[in-house]
């Protein structure tokens, strides 16, 4: 289970990196970034998983006494919760930069933008 998730998360990150490096369309680059982001989230959750574990929430199914034996690691879950929100904010900022760049240069392709060349 854990290994499967780790392989899946690396596959997602690799696809995202490929998108980041091989595409020239700004929106597609941002999609690539989001894929890398999702892969990292998946990796963190997978690292926090334990065998036959469940969400660390006290309920009828998981009374307080069983929590320490059955609950998964809450710290990576909390980290991912944070990372998702930060990812959303960063994506919104990137998209608005993309819109602004298109308005200025009339092109959404990064290789058409000479300002950033060196």
């Amino acid at each position: 289970m854990t290994q499967g998730l780790i392989i899946l998360s690396f596959a997602l990150m690799a696809i995202g990196m490929w998108g980041l490096m091989s595409r020239r369309h700004l929106i597609r680059i941002i999609i690539g970034f989001s894929l890398v982001d999702t892969g990292v989230h998946l990796l963190l959750v997978a690292v926090g998983y334990r065998e036959s574990g469940t969400a660390p929430i006290v309920s009828d199914r998981l009374p307080l006494e069983l929590l320490a034996r059955r609950g998964v690691d809450p710290v990576p879950s909390a980290l991912v919760l944070t990372a998702i929100v930060i990812g959303l904010a960063v994506t919104a900022l990137m998209l608005s930069f993309a819109v602004r760049m298109y308005q200025r240069t009339r092109s959404i392709y990064i290789d058409k933008n000479k300002e950033l060349r060196w």
Binding site: M1, Q3, G48, Y49, R50, L67, A68, G71, D73
Partner: peptide, 14 residues
């Protein structure tokens, strides 16, 4: 691999 036990911090939280 599959983990059965957690680290000390996570155990203390749980």
């Amino acid at each position: 691999g599959e983990r059965t036990d957690l680290g000390p911090v996570a155990t203390a939280y749980l």
